[in-house]
């Protein structure tokens, strides 16, 4: 685990995946391009959640709120103001980060599970506001017909935009996770008491982590509106938060790209299983149960353990 130097094969594999993603629109029908964009966005959202969850050990149970607020931030700038809609891409992460800061100030002093439950509560309050404030947010209808900037409004254009922004965000988050801040954050995850004993203000770092993760979720939200052209209250409903938690679990919390992998698997499953049965959530539930029972470190976690021979680190109480 130490240093995690990217080996040569990893680089080559990564470069090939990126290349394939850039060539995708030329090779597959539009629906798949659209699907790929949604997977990237959801994966970005799950990765931002995992920054605080897997690398910070914080029970961020209601991460979707920041995604939804980012989406609404962008949609409102694009529809209700005369500002160029590009501005929305700046506003989305900023409002998400601000909300994250406000919620964090209230929640960060609480212990683990209390923190998580408080998050669900405050997030639901935000949802309730969005759901009811018809004149501003469109209430349960949401905001439709959002026009993204012309350059990125076609399916292909929005896909390339999404892909580029996602790659940049992933690179930034990768840097953060492997930065001194990221390392300290992992220290806090493993042992907050000890981290404070070596001179680190744990609460401040946790708050900073929350704000950063919230900002990236906000970016994902603005991308969603770019691709879908609308924002609606379900984007910040608690079930979505739990779904992205499941994606993190599925891919593996302790691996940077685990959540992206989990998102890809879940979204693909949902689309294709959904063709054959309307009971796909039951299938997802059963899969989740099996993962919890047999694969608590996720699919990639198992793979990594098999290849590196790491012992599984024991669960904290």
């Amino acid at each position: 685990m130490h240093n995690n130097p990217l080996t040569r094969p990893t680089w080559i594999a990564g470069a090939m995946v990126v290349l394939a993603l850039f060539l995708l629109p030329a090779a597959v029908p539009r629906f798949y391009v659209y699907m790929a964009a949604l997977i990237l966005i959801t994966g970005l959202l799950a990765t931002s959640l995992n920054m605080v969850l897997g690398f910070g050990g914080m029970y961020q149970f209601h991460h979707a709120v920041f995604y939804g607020i980012g989406a609404y931030g962008f949609a409102l700038i694009a529809t209700k103001t005369s500002l160029p809609s590009w501005v929305g891409y700046l506003v989305a992460p900023v409002v998400a980060a601000l909300l994250s800061l406000i919620m964090g100030l209230i929640t960060v002093r609480l212990s683990k599970l209390y923190f998580g439950m408080m998050q669900i509560s405050l997030g639901s309050l935000v949802w309730a506001l969005v759901f009811r404030w018809y004149s501003f947010t469109g209430g349960d209808d949401g905001i439709h017909g959002v026009c993204p900037p012309e350059a990125v409004s076609s399916t292909t254009g929005s896909y390339y935009f999404t892909l580029s922004v996602t790659l940049v965000c992933l690179w930034l988050m990768y840097r953060i996770v492997h930065s001194p801040f990221g390392r300290t954050f992992q220290g806090i995850r493993d042992n907050p008491e000890r981290t404070s004993a070596v001179g680190v203000d744990v609460r401040r770092h946790q708050l900073a982590g929350l704000v950063i993760a919230g900002a990236f979720a906000g970016v994902a939200g603005s991308l969603f509106v770019t691709v879908e052209g609308c924002a609606f209250p379900e984007l910040l409903f608690w079930t979505l938060s739990l779904e992205i938690l499941v994606m993190c679990l599925l891919g593996g919390w302790f691996i940077f790209l685990g959540p992206m992998f989990g998102a890809a698997v879940m979204m693909t499953l949902r689309t294709f299983v959904g063709i054959y049965t309307e009971y796909w959530t039951m299938i997802m539930g059963v899969v989740l149960m099996l993962i919890i029972l047999f694969l608590p470190e996720g699919v990639l976690g198992l793979f990594k353990r098999k290849t590196t021979g790491d012992k599984p680190a024991e669960e904290e109480a």
Binding site: G116, T281, M282, M289, I292
Partner: peptide, 19 residues
């Protein structure tokens, strides 16, 4: 197990129950 796992397990129950 960790609280998080228990929470997610109850979520999986929710998914199954609702369907």
């Amino acid at each position: 197990r960790e609280h998080l796992m228990l929470l997610l397990f109850t979520f999986s129950l929710t998914l199954v129950f609702n369907d």
